[in-house]
C-alpha cells in the first residue's frame, strides 16, 4: 500500500538569535493509509515539529515532505492552506474551538470554508459527525458550556467532518483526566477502525501509546 505521508531526510533548522537550532535531524518516516500511529518521545524531542511538517504548517529546511502524493516543499501559503483544508484534520491538545460558535457551527466551520456542500448536505454531515462523537444533545452549546472531554469530541468531529486523508492529533489527551483521555483515544480508535481514517498523534502517555498500531519514537530530533 502506498504511503500517505512520506518524510524523506527531513532537516528542520530554526534561527535563534545568531545561533541555528536543529529541531529535526535527517528524519525519514512513511505512514500508510489507515494506520493509527503514535509519535512518542520526551518534551523537546521533535514530536510537534514532525506534526508541523505533516500538517503542512511548516516546511523542511532540507529533505522532502509528501502528503497524499503532494510534495509540499514548494507550495505557497495559499496552496498549503488549501491542502490542510481538504486533506488534513486537526485535533489539538487545548481543543482550540472557536468560542463564539456553538458545537454545530464549530463542526461546520471547515465545511463552510470548503464551500463544497449544499446547506442541506452540510447540515446532514454535521449532524452525522456530532452524533458519532455523542454530542447530539449539546449541538447548540458553546465551548465554554462543555467539559474538556466534550470539547475534544467536538474537535474530533471538526477534524473528521471533511473526510480528511489524515487526522493529526497533538497530545489529544494531555489536558484530560485519564478516564476521559482513554475514552477519547477509544473514540479515535473506533473511527480509525470503522472509517479507515489515518490517525497520527503525538503523545508521551504510555497508555495512549499502547493503543497505537504503530509507534514512532523520537529523541533529540531523530527517529529512534
Amino acid at each position: 500500500m502506498p504511503a500517505i505521508v512520506e518524510l524523506n531526510n527531513v532537516v528542520k533548522e530554526y534561527p535563534l538569535g545568531k545561533l541555528v537550532v536543529t529541531a529535526l535531524h535527517d528524519v525519514s518516516i512513511a505512514i500508510t493509509k489507515g494506520e493509527f500511529t503514535a509519535i512518542a518521545g520526551p518534551s523537546g524531542s521533535g514530536k510537534t515539529t514532525i506534526l508541523n511538517m505533516i500538517g503542512c504548517m511548516d516546511v523542511p529546511t532540507t529533505g522532502t515532505v509528501k502528503i497524499d502524493g503532494t510534495l509540499t516543499n514548494n507550495l505557497d501559503d495559499h496552496a498549503l492552506t488549501t491542502l490542510r483544508l481538504n486533506r488534513i484534520g486537526f485535533i489539538f491538545q487545548s481543543f482550540n474551538l472557536v468560542n463564539v460558535l456553538d458545537v454545530r457551527q464549530n463542526v461546520e466551520f471547515p465545511l463552510l470554508l470548503q464551500g463544497k456542500l449544499s446547506s442541506k448536505d452540510r447540515k446532514l454531515r454535521v449532524e452525522e459527525m456530532v452524533e458519532k462523537v455523542g454530542l447530539t444533545k449539546q449541538m447548540t452549546q458553546r465551548p465554554n458550556e462543555l467539559s474538556g472531554g466534550q470539547r475534544q469530541r467536538v474537535a474530533i468531529a471538526r477534524a473528521l467532518v471533511t473526510n480528511p486523508a489524515i487526522v493529526l492529533a497533538d497530545e489529544p489527551t494531555a489536558n484530560l483526566d485519564s478516564t476521559t483521555g482513554h475514552a477519547i483515544i477509544e473514540l479515535m480508535r473506533d473511527l480509525n477502525a470503522n472509517d479507515h481514517t489515518t490517525f497520527i498523534f503525538s503523545t508521551h502517555d504510555p497508555k495512549v501509546m499502547e493503543r497505537a498500531t504503530r509507534l514512532i519514537m523520537v529523541a533529540d530530533g531523530k527517529v529512534v
Binding site: L85, N96, L113
Partner: peptide, 12 residues
C-alpha cells in the same frame, strides 16, 4: 483562535 482557523484551512 486565529491560528486554529488558519490551521483548519482558513486563508489569510
Amino acid at each position: 483562535e486565529i491560528g486554529t482557523m488558519r490551521a483548519v484551512g482558513a486563508q489569510r
